[in-house]
């Protein structure tokens, strides 16, 4: 009850922010732009939905922009309220600190999911309305994966926000998360593998299987693997099942572990 009250309050608060409208507009604009780029040439052309998704929407919007938006939506969830003093109002009411952290994960994830759906699907309705053949099922499914990825990054950012006392520190942590996962993950994991090559070879695993696991341990790659499986009609079937299962479990891990770690610190703090 308390968790739902916090989540609902935070959802209402977040969707009323000006950034939400800007976000939906930006998503719509980019999807529309990419759709224009891959538009069918000539009379008999088929609309390349899969090309639109895996070559344009995927790399730019989903793995590039959505994590950033998740961080922006989440980073000041707790630290911002702590700094402004609205946390005092919140904790005057019968909410546990766990309700606050997880209520915020839920409320802000819901707001971001709404923004992703609105931003992706508004331009898609135009495609559905035109006589051009358009694979609406693939597009809708892909949007779900984008929303999941956004929600995972909201969780990670809210976790940092709960652990840190000021908005500024949470922002720095949020930027760090983005850089680590989106820009530097391959570099880091490459270095780690290089350094531990010897010890890994003594274990009953191969270096390439460890590399494969480290790749999908990154939520952006994990979602990419799952989305590509979905587009190829091979989700949880075919050769890549192991990777896909690893990807799902790592996404669950990233959705839960950071808020729990943040709560651990938040629970001990004097506010």
């Amino acid at each position: 009850m308390s968790l739902r009250a916090v989540a609902r309050k935070d959802f209402h608060d977040t969707v009323r922010s000006r950034g939400m409208v800007a976000l939906v507009g930006l998503f719509s604009l980019l999807v529309a732009l990419f759709a224009y780029v891959v538009r069918p040439q000539g009379a008999a052309g088929q609309f390349a939905t899969e090309l639109l998704l895996s070559a344009f929407v995927g790399p730019v919007l989903v793995t590039g922009l959505v994590p950033l938006v998740g961080v922006v939506v989440g980073y000041n969830a707790v630290s911002g309220e702590r700094e402004s003093g609205s946390l005092k109002l919140l904790l005057s009411l019968p909410h546990s600190r766990a309700d606050v952290v997880f209520g915020k994960v839920l409320g802000r994830s819901a707001a971001l999911v709404l923004a992703v759906f609105a931003g992706f699907l508004l331009p898609a309705t135009v495609l559905v309305a035109t006589p051009v053949p358009f694979n609406a099922g693939s597009f809708l499914g892909y949007t779900v994966f984008a929303a999941v990825l956004g929600a995972v990054f909201v969780s990670i950012a809210v976790g940092c926000s709960a652990a840190l006392a000021t908005r500024q520190r949470a922002l720095i942590a949020g930027i760090g998360i983005y850089v680590a996962f989106v820009l530097l993950w391959g570099f880091f994991t490459g270095r780690v593998l290089g350094a531990f090559q010897g010890p890994i070879e003594t274990l009953p695993v191969t270096v390439s299987s460890v590399r494969s696991f480290l790749d999908v341990a990154n939520p952006t790659t994990g979602v990419e693997v799952l989305a590509n499986g979905f587009l190829a009609d091979q989700l949880f079937t075919g050769d890549a099942v192991d990777r896909q299962v690893s990807a799902v479990s790592m996404l669950v891990f990233w959705a839960l572990a950071p808020p729990l770690a943040g709560l651990w610190a938040f629970d001990r703090a004097d506010l």
Binding site: M1, S2, R8, D13, S84, L93
Partner: peptide, 26 residues
């Protein structure tokens, strides 16, 4: 509780604040 040095949720209406308090206390 009427806390000291608090701030309100600027985007939410007064009614929604009080409704939130009622929801929170069930």
């Amino acid at each position: 509780v009427l806390p000291d040095g608090f701030s309100v949720y600027g985007r939410l209406s007064g009614r929604r604040h009080v409704q939130f308090a009622a929801d929170s206390k069930a």
